[in-house]
Nucleic acid binder design. Structure first.
Lengths: 223, 223
DNA sequence: TTAATTTGATAGTAATACTATTAAATTTGT
DNA sequence: ACAAATTTAATAGTATTACTATCAAATTAA
């Protein structure tokens, strides 16, 4: 995919200084994705990132208050990007089932292609979403951070797809529960298939996660 | 529920010295559950626990190598306890659908009653499972720890219920994926309903999580 | 009742997650 | 082109964490 003249806009409270606004800021984003996907979020520190980009710890702190805020930034970017791809993919499709089916593919299929979107490697970011994504909200500050709008892109995505569920079956009582279960479940099954395979049903011939969740949804929505 | 003459046996590699074997060990378990469910796993330290039980940090380190190992111990205990309740609940029930339905209730319903099982408060432990459970395996050491058998009780539980799925529908291709999605999904929906309600469908009249997942399963298993 | 084991108290270490300060480098405005 | 403003780099420092080590005191077991 070629470079698009599109900007993903991120909640300004997530950063102290917009990383898009400078070369150093962009290097922080590019290389934090690289480093976190490589060594994991716990082992990741601003000091290591500084060494990685030949810059200084204290300079990174001028962009992000903490590594937790940086993670929230990356995750917000990811879900906003998915939301954008979703809107694009279902525009001009009118049949509700088709619309939902396309939406589900977008949230359940692996990201394997680098979309060359500015300075962000989506394949590595996808790995972060799978390995570290839940660390964004399993914290003592979750209520405060939710109130501050830090999870908005994710909630917006769930809402959008829930609306598609309702288009297919207007009387279905749990659209958000269904969709957040699908998105979270997909991430978790991918993690289990790689690390605790007994908890899933791995098939080396074929990626069965997406098809499992697709049938889960459509079986639930049958009248 | 009254005290039962039953012991939950835990993988010996999880501890340095069996906490069941001494008064101090039992106080460590009882009060770590108390303290973790109260202040959260990140804020929890062995130093604070020591103060809480008027004992010493270094003494606690003689029982558990790290707070991570202690968490694994508590989680192993929890799933072993659920497994035990499951075996009890479905014995003497022969109809496969009934068996599966009972099993699902056991893993999806809230634990609201303290079973007075020795020195463990199951209600507080349940809160830890919901709030902190996934921290057990979202680590860099997951593969090694899985190989060492640290997640066995959970895997055994998923296997048992997957077998019930197969009893109901022998041709269903994803029994483990279905059941781990249900168990993980239940935990997550309970967390979302409390902290990020937009991601779920909260109903203050009624606990809809269990019924959502029950219908999810049975709709998936229809021939 | 002595020996072995367990526990408690204290001290110490390396790493983490920052904050503060100041100088150097770069960018911007005119 | 040059001074002023801003950004970045370098260094130092702090409180906390997650431990380890040592040794004395208390408890338990032979």
């Amino acid at each position: 995919m070629q470079d698009l003249p599109l900007k993903i806009s991120i909640e300004t409270n997530l950063y102290l200084k917009n990383p898009e606004s400078s070369d150093l800021g962009q290097r922080i984003i590019t290389n934090s994705i690289e480093l976190i996907s490589d060594i994991g979020f716990e082992s990741f520190t601003f000091k290591k990132l500084g060494q990685h980009i030949s810059s200084n710890e204290s300079s990174i702190y001028r962009y992000f208050e903490s590594k937790h805020m940086l993670l929230l930034y990356l995750i917000s970017w990811y879900w906003s990007w998915v939301e954008y791809r979703l809107a694009f993919a279902i525009s001009n499709i009118s049949n509700p089932k088709d619309r939902l089916q396309i939406a589900l593919k977008i949230v359940t299929k692996k990201v394997e292609e680098d979309f060359a979107f500015t300075y962000i490697n989506e394949v590595k970011l996808f790995k972060i979403i799978i390995d570290e994504g839940s660390k964004a909200y399993y914290t003592k500050e979750v209520d405060k951070e939710n109130a501050m709008g830090f999870f908005k892109p994710y909630k917006r995505l769930v809402k959008r797809i829930s609306d598609l569920v309702i288009e297919v079956n207007p009387s279905f009582p749990y659209p958000s529960m269904l969709i957040s279960t699908v998105i979270e479940g997909t991430r978790k099954q991918r993690y289990f298939q790689e690390h605790i395979p007994a908890l899933s049903d791995f098939d080396d011939q074929d990626d069965n996660v997406a098809s499992f969740f697709e049938s889960l949804v459509f079986n639930s929505l049958k009248p």
